[in-house]
């Protein structure tokens, strides 16, 4: 069985901020990590591999340093890594990204199941999974919280608003995974030491390698453009209340009485 896992290297968003004076993204102290839900997707693939005879490939698109997440994927237990990296891929929207990743998956050969995180926390779009499924013409199950494979089909629990659906689909298929699906393993020390050796297979592909033209990918191949970015601001006038707890309590009630807002049933 062949499993393909899509992983992405992202800035750790919990410490991303913009310098208010210069408007620059403050990159100091911002570390790069594997997108958390992708880690769950990889764990799902590895636990399938624990039970079946399966080969797990990890694929990532990004700048050259994204090789770090490929190594991390190998250190967790993947068999092979593929990094798509090319200046031509830069500035891609999800259309152009799914074009590149879709072509790479196709070039990599037949597969049974593609797994990805539901969304990457730097963009939160949740679009790449479904777009690749459409590109490859295979069924998709998104937001998966449980997964079983048997007899050429996959049965998954998909979390929806206020509930859960149990969906069955034949393979090959694509699933996007939620954090509740499993608890990802940590890389092991032995595999870490292996993953950095040139003998552990990582293929590096550029646009030409996957057979796409520069105009089809990256910013040039994108259908949407970022017009501007800005830092959101609160824009409220904050009124500080001080004094004894009773003063403060009365102050809060008075605030809403003044504004004719009802407190209580």
């Amino acid at each position: 069985m062949k499993l393909v896992v899509l992983i992405k290297q992202i800035p750790n968003t919990s410490n991303v901020r913009i310098d208010p004076k210069t408007g620059n993204l403050v990159r100091e102290g911002v570390t790069s990590i594997m997108n958390p839900e992708d880690r769950h997707a990889l764990e799902a693939a590895l636990s399938i591999k624990d039970h079946f005879n399966a080969v797990v490939d990890v694929i990532s698109m990004g700048p050259p340093q994204a090789i770090e997440v490929i190594c991390e994927g190998l250190a967790m237990g993947a068999d092979k890594g593929i990094l798509l990296t090319d200046r031509a891929f830069a500035g891609a929207d999800t259309w152009a990204t799914s074009t590149a990743l879709g072509n790479a998956i196709r070039k990599n050969g037949p597969f049974d199941l593609i797994l990805a995180g539901r969304q990457a926390i730097d963009g939160d779009t949740a679009q790449i999974g479904p777009q690749i499924a459409e590109f490859l013409g295979i069924p998709q199950i998104t937001c998966v919280s449980a997964l079983e494979l048997s007899d050429g089909k996959v049965v998954a629990n998909r979390i929806i608003e206020n509930g859960c659906e149990r969906i069955e689909t034949p393979l090959p298929a694509l699933v996007t995974c939620l954090a509740s699906l499993n608890e990802p393993r940590y890389p092991t020390v032995g595999r870490i030491l292996d993953s950095v050796l040139e003998s552990t297979p990582i293929e590096i592909w550029n646009a030409a390698d996957i057979g796409v033209k520069a105009q089809e990918v990256g910013l040039a191949g994108s259908l949407t453009q970022v017009l501007k970015t800005f830092t959101p601001k609160g824009g409220r006038e904050t009124q500080y209340l001080e004094g004894t707890p009773s003063d403060i309590a009365s102050g809060i009630v008075q605030f809403f009485v003044d504004r004719q807002v009802r407190l209580g049933e």
């Binding site: 190594c71 990296t85 993953s195 950095v196 040139e198 990582i202 293929e203 390698d209």
Partner: peptide, 8 residues
């Protein structure tokens, strides 16, 4: 194929 240094 391009060679990219791996992390240590």
């Amino acid at each position: 194929m391009t060679r990219i240094p791996r992390p240590t």
